[in-house]
Design a protein around this nucleic acid. Sequence first.
DNA 1: CTATTTGCAAACACTTTGCACAGCA
DNA 2: TGCTGTGCAAAGTGTTTGCAAATAG
Lengths: 134, 134
Amino acid sequence: MQIIIMSRRERAPKQRVVLEAIQGHTDHPTAEELYRELNKQGHAISLATVYRNLRALAQEGKVRELHGAGPDRFDPNTHPHYHLLCLACGRVYDVETPYQNALDHLPLPPGFHVHRHELTFMGLCPKCEETASL
Amino acid sequence: MQIIIMSRRERAPKQRVVLEAIQGHTDHPTAEELYRELNKQGHAISLATVYRNLRALAQEGKVRELHGAGPDRFDPNTHPHYHLLCLACGRVYDVETPYQNALDHLPLPPGFHVHRHELTFMGLCPKCEETASL
DNA sequence: CTATTTGCAAACACTTTGCACAGCA
DNA sequence: TGCTGTGCAAAGTGTTTGCAAATAG
């Protein structure tokens, strides 16, 4: 059990708000998307603060940054896991497949050391598979 | 010795120059790096043209675009293969490991279709493994 | 002559930063 | 008081684009 005593207000309220917002997502939102969502919900917060807190949370290991074409996306799921990028719409989905530890122990040229790997499947999502011309 | 006969001039000379330049690399250069290299070698070419031709070559499948933190990188090796990103210096290396076809046939929720996958190992390169504080 | 390619500079998309102020200890 | 967090606008980085000039067919 944990007892939390706050002397009244908290230290970095916007960071908590950003973290809670992204934790409500499985769809890997961009900073801009979170910013718009928060303001729509009545939280007065600037885009710069959303960026600052997302990057800070990433440093602390509480969210993960995803790079690709277009703006960076953020993932509240920090467990090792994989993604599927829809080649038609650009959305990023989580993939349940267990982390393939073996891949981190493949033989490599001397001097190289693998900490972990990232695996992204490229394909089509249900929403796009019919429409797809690609 | 090489004898070159051209019917006079060619269609998109700068594109050929860009392609040849990147084909001389295994280190996944950025557009800026290629631009500087070419001009150093005496080819008058603009950065915009380097970008335009790299993107065009990518569409034609003659080079591959790599996204990550910082500027996009370009890879003349279009065969399916993997990369190692050095977490210390940011350089990207090719990894010889054979393409794991099995990964493209893992069970997924209905409606998802995998075309291929991209796998990036994160770790340290020989140049950084000693220096590494990370 | 018409279509394509290029350079240049401007525009653009995304992200970070300087600074002044507000909030908390 | 002094340190941290925030907003705002400006600056920064990486990339694309409009347009006119050059070049190819």
